[in-house]
Simulated assay, not measured.
Amino acid sequence: MKDVIKISTVAFNATWGDKQVNLNRMLGYVDAAAAEGANLIVFTEMGLTGYDDEEEDKPQSEKMQTKLAETVPGPSSEAMAQKAKELGVYIAFGLPERDKDDASVIYNAACVCGPEGVIGSYHKIHLPFPEPHWATRGDEPFIFETPWGPVGLGICYDTYCFQELMRYYAAKGCRLYVNCTALAKCHGVALGSTTLEAGSIVNQIYIVSANLAGKDLYNDFWGGSSIIGPSTKFWEAEYFAGYPFTDPRAAENRMYTATVDLTLATREKFKPNALIGGATDFRPAVYRKLYEDLLQDPKFQE
């Protein structure tokens, strides 16, 4: 398994509602990233179409996200896959995905393509306002295999407010977590960078985060795409590329690239600990009991 990987992440000012323009721009960024030697290129949540919802009383069938949604594989993912094959890279990008079996079901999704073609897609598990106006919740994690080991993927709210997903990926051996996101200034100053840094520290994992930048339909997005990982300083996180969300330089539409050494993602809490009989500090059997107790409450049942 390889340990050193070069990653590019794009702070992307999507053109709202113009899929072809956004796709062409993303393909151009992939060319540029590959020319710099990048192995993995990450784009934002809903980068293919733009993020913002329209008026709440507009029927779901008339929403921009519904109209522009595609299946995976589909036209845009196939175009990305062809580029990934041509350049020998991995690409993650956000889009509204139409369910293959029920065209009325749309997911807030992130598609992953690699040298072998379309690898698959992740459906966002946690949907904040206003996404339930057009999207259906997913219910499965998504790990894709690379020469650098398994990589886990989440989208925005999944990452900032529900640490279970990143913790699961780290316990499964992922040294790298991809966060496709659309974090707007209306979400406040603390949510994004604070939780990404904490996630990297407590899980000893690298996080590559790609955020929308600038004005969408009406929201102003932070930008702040970054590559964060474990520091050589004990229990600290390091920015290997990019900026925290609230940094004045973060809002520009630009690409950040860094080479990182994944061996720093030690994930000690998930390794056998001789002091406790060879078990791990991480205790899923205990957590299962806690969650089974919570499931007795109807409000937590699906």
Rank of each mutant, 00 (worst) to 15 (best):
L264K: 15
F240L: 10
K269L: 07
R254F: 03
T232N: 12
F240Q: 06
T257C: 12
A237C: 09
Y239G: 06
D261R: 01
F245V: 03
A251R: 14
V260R: 05
T257G: 10
D247R: 12
Y239F: 15
T263C: 04
E236A: 15
R249Q: 05
E236F: 08
A241F: 02
P244A: 14
E238M: 03
T259M: 07
N253G: 04
W235V: 04
L264M: 14
A251T: 09
W235A: 13
N253V: 01
A265T: 13
W235C: 09
G242Y: 08
F270D: 08
Y243H: 14
A251C: 05
A250C: 00
T232R: 12
E236W: 08
A237P: 05
T257Q: 14
K269P: 03
M255E: 13
T246W: 00
F234C: 04
T263S: 15
Y239T: 07
R267E: 07
K269N: 10
A241N: 13
A258H: 08
G242Q: 12
F234P: 02
E238T: 11
D261G: 06
T246V: 11
E268Y: 13
A258K: 08
A237Q: 07
T266E: 09
R267W: 06
Y256W: 06
V260Y: 00
E236D: 06
L264P: 02
F234Y: 13
A250D: 00
A241M: 02
M255D: 05
E236S: 10
T259E: 15
D247A: 13
A237H: 06
E238A: 11
V260N: 05
R254G: 03
E268R: 15
F245C: 06
A250P: 00
A265C: 12
A265N: 10
T232H: 06
T259R: 14
K269D: 13
A250E: 00
G242H: 08
F245K: 04
F245I: 03
V260E: 02
F240R: 11
F240W: 07
D261A: 01
T259C: 03
E268W: 10
